[in-house]
Computed example of a mutant assay.
Amino acid sequence: MSVVVEPYNPAWPSYFSKIKSTIQSYLSGIPILSIEHIGSTSVPHLAAKPIIDIDIIVTRENIQPAVDALVQKGKFTYLGELGIADRHALQDPDQVPKRNVYVCVEGAFQVRNHLGVRDTLKQNAELRDEYGALKLQLAEQGTNIVDYIEAKSGVVMKILKAAGLLSGEELEEIEMANKKGERFGATKTERLLLREFVLADVEGYFELESSDEVVRYQTFGPRTREEARDDVSMIVMNSSAVPRSHVELAVEHEGRFIGRVGAVVKRESGRGEKVDAPHADLWFSFIPEYQGKGFATEAVRAFVSLLGGPLELEIECDPRNTGSWKLAKRLGFERISLTEKVYQCKGEWVDSLVYRKWV
């Protein structure tokens, strides 16, 4: 999924004003210091991703009341800090126009970051044009969001230094946050694209996991749209963890979300002791019309390569799920065990078939 950057749209400030008014109605009775339009859409004449970024600034003691009000009254989804202290992300169910909403602690360096970039670019046309040209160039090259954030970090740091609102230590922290960390850029195979999940994947995920056929051998039933939203939100939150224990990527074919591949990586024994090599439990699921065409094998092979090693990989499945164990065999996994009646799934006892491989 490539980043989309558009020339400045004069309607963006009015979009913000309408969203702000709605947010204020949800936060009635809660002391709010300000609601700020931040990000590139807040800067006249600056090219930007067409997403309205909003900071709701409150004192520390009002963070939780503000979050609770948005969740309860506005049906927002709370996403946590996503690796950035004192900036609490929420997803507004209304995404027309698209928006990012944050509840932020007054004076936090991330707030000073956002306001410093905005105000500096409003006053410095040279920096504004340099930043806009880079964003358009990266979008034209088809850059994915993870690489996009890292690629523009140099100019962002120049803007922040010009703003003069952050300490050297805070600048270093922002520079580190803009690096990939343990997130992956887009990975192309012969037919597929593997990439990090974004919140816009909710509908694709829902189409996938609401299928009876897809969840047939899972302990859970078909996902509702709300459950799909919660699942994708959790995947996005997990992607910012370091070290990363839950790794899950979306799979696209010709621009369409067709499946997912993932792993839980365990770096400690059951007694909390570090192990010589981590253990990874793998899973995958694909929309039925894309099953039986080698897409899962192609995706899992690429995913395993991304995980690196040394690593003990495991695929555990219901032996009736022939697609899973046949894929394991195709990728060189060794059958380890078949245990009868290990757990209950949809009212019946299910056997457990385990395949493993070292990489």
Rank of each mutant, 00 (worst) to 15 (best):
L82I: 13
I19E: 06
T77G: 12
G74C: 09
E36H: 01
P44R: 05
E81M: 13
E61V: 08
W12K: 07
S34G: 03
K75Y: 09
R60H: 07
G74M: 08
I19C: 07
F16K: 01
K75H: 15
N62P: 02
A48Q: 02
L82G: 12
H88T: 13
V67W: 05
K20V: 11
K49G: 06
W12V: 09
L82T: 15
W12Y: 04
I56S: 06
P50K: 06
L27W: 04
A69F: 03
I51K: 00
K20Q: 14
F16L: 09
P13G: 07
I23V: 15
I23R: 01
Q91S: 11
I30Y: 02
A89M: 10
Y26R: 07
R60V: 05
S14T: 04
L70G: 03
H37W: 03
K20M: 05
I56D: 01
A66G: 12
I56P: 02
D53A: 09
R87S: 15
V43S: 08
I51Y: 00
I38F: 05
D86I: 12
G39K: 03
I54C: 12
Q24S: 13
Y15I: 08
T59R: 15
P44Y: 11
I63P: 00
H45F: 11
A66W: 03
S40M: 05
H45W: 02
R87V: 13
G83N: 10
E81I: 14
K18H: 11
I52W: 07
I38M: 07
F76H: 12
I35Q: 04
A48Y: 04
E36T: 05
I56E: 05
R87Q: 14
A85R: 15
R60W: 04
L79P: 12
Y78C: 12
Q91H: 15
H88C: 12
E61Y: 01
P13I: 10
A69C: 06
L33A: 00
P31K: 10
P13F: 05
Q72M: 08
A11T: 05
L27D: 02
L82D: 12
L70T: 02
D68M: 09
S25H: 03
H45Y: 08
L79Y: 06
P65Y: 05
S14C: 07
I56A: 10
L82S: 14
I51V: 15
I54Q: 08
Y78M: 13
W12T: 11
I63D: 00
